[in-house]
Design a binder for these strands. Structure first.
Lengths: 224, 224
DNA sequence: TGTTGCGGATAGTAGAACTATCCGTCTATG
DNA sequence: CATAGACGGATAGTTCTACTATCCGCAACA
């Protein structure tokens, strides 16, 4: 059953104002409805789903409109092989910033060496390399360099070893009874939501460890 | 040797424009220099370090100026115990967003149950709970709910078990031969930089797994 | 002694993400 | 079949954030 609704109801269902939906339409983040007259169009579940995806990209993933456009273009373009579309989406999810300076170049070299050492199949121009280099530069700047281990970035060896089987499982669980676009959508959603979830788990673990290490005097038992 | 420099040199060293440094001074993100006359002041390494910390919060951590103020206030306020300051900083690092709606409340309940199940010492009002709930809501919205396991969020059990010893190690490696402010600084930097680094490692692992699963036709061997 | 830079205050700007208004059309209700 | 209210599309305006520029009186240095 295809729900043929007007923009107002799309707004009600998704919780996004009509004005904003129109804005998304203008920006090409959302495909138009099926026109029934010169100024009438019907929206269906595909629109509801897309609006939710857009919101996930913008709010949870904290992407800019421009980057969301890139991701969605890759999702939608059937002429792009799924692995390449995945790459485009991944790249768009790394925020741009100034990366000039020799310090940054050195960090990037270390990251590339790390990737080579682990024989990872990561594109040499993947933005994720810059992302890791950003973190390394900041650690260096602020005196965390010894936390990186010897050789440099060795501290990440174990974490990568943990991440690999999880990633393999995640990728392997990609269903192949769904369309390419759906696969892409799942991949994008998975990347974003799990990233946030993992970061949250890590922070919870940190707070827990901090509570134990530094003692929590919260909720002191009543002396009665 | 204390380097007594004017704002221009602070700008040169940090790569942040004078105008922006003045802005940070106004906003209280950066403490003023030692006044030597009515319109003269000297800056030292403490300023260099603070500027780098601010930039790390804003660019790598993607905090707003307002949230950076909260974090830095917690770092600077010696009257706050280190564990409580850590909590403030952690909370400020979760971006604000609209979290009304029953769907969100349900997700939050599940997160709280998860925390209780694992007997985590996490404040009941910690923002990180909302962060995880955000991810859960988005997963539900977009059909990832079965990826959460049974009981709900069970898929995260293993990850949390991995994260706990790492967090314990990280917290345990806090040096106690440095000042409280320095400890706080390290904690904040560590939270941000490692979070970015872990996310990057995860994405690399994903790209690697994707390359293997979906085959990479990049750089096809020459037939010669 | 004058040019250059400084600190502090105030005002202005660019970009991002919406938000509001208008207008001609359609359509549901009575 | 008249008409009030949505609708789609276009355009202009708003809000917020993170800067950026200008001005001013004073200090330092040549």
């Amino acid at each position: 059953m295809v729900s043929r609704v007007k923009i107002r109801e799309l707004s009600d269902v998704t919780g996004v104002t009509v004005a904003t939906l129109k804005y998304y339409l203008r920006e090409g983040l959302l495909h138009g409805g099926a026109a029934t007259a010169v100024n009438q169009a019907d929206y269906d579940e595909s629109h509801v789903r897309r609006v939710r995806l857009v919101r996930a990209l913008l709010q949870l993933g904290r992407l800019s409109i421009a980057d969301a456009q890139l991701v969605l273009a890759a999702v939608d373009d059937d002429s792009i092989a799924i692995h390449d579309a995945f790459a485009v989406a991944q790249d768009a999810m790394v925020p741009a910033r100034d990366r000039s300076g020799p310090q940054y170049a050195a960090a990037l070299d270390e990251v590339v060496a790390f990737v080579r050492r682990h024989r990872l199949q990561v594109r040499p121009d993947a933005h994720v390399l810059e992302m890791l280099a950003d973190a390394v530069v900041t650690m260096d700047d602020l005196g965390f360099s010894d936390a990186l281990g010897t050789p440099r970035l060795a501290s990440f060896d174990g974490l990568l070893e943990m991440a690999l089987p999880i990633a393999e499982f995640e990728v392997a669980s990609t269903r192949d009874d769904i369309t390419r676009a759906e696969q892409m959508e799942y991949t994008v959603i998975g990347t974003i939501t799990f990233e946030v979830a993992y970061a949250a788990l890590r922070r919870m673990a940190l707070e827990h460890a901090s509570a134990i290490r530094f003692g929590s005097r919260r909720k002191p038992r009543r002396t009665d």
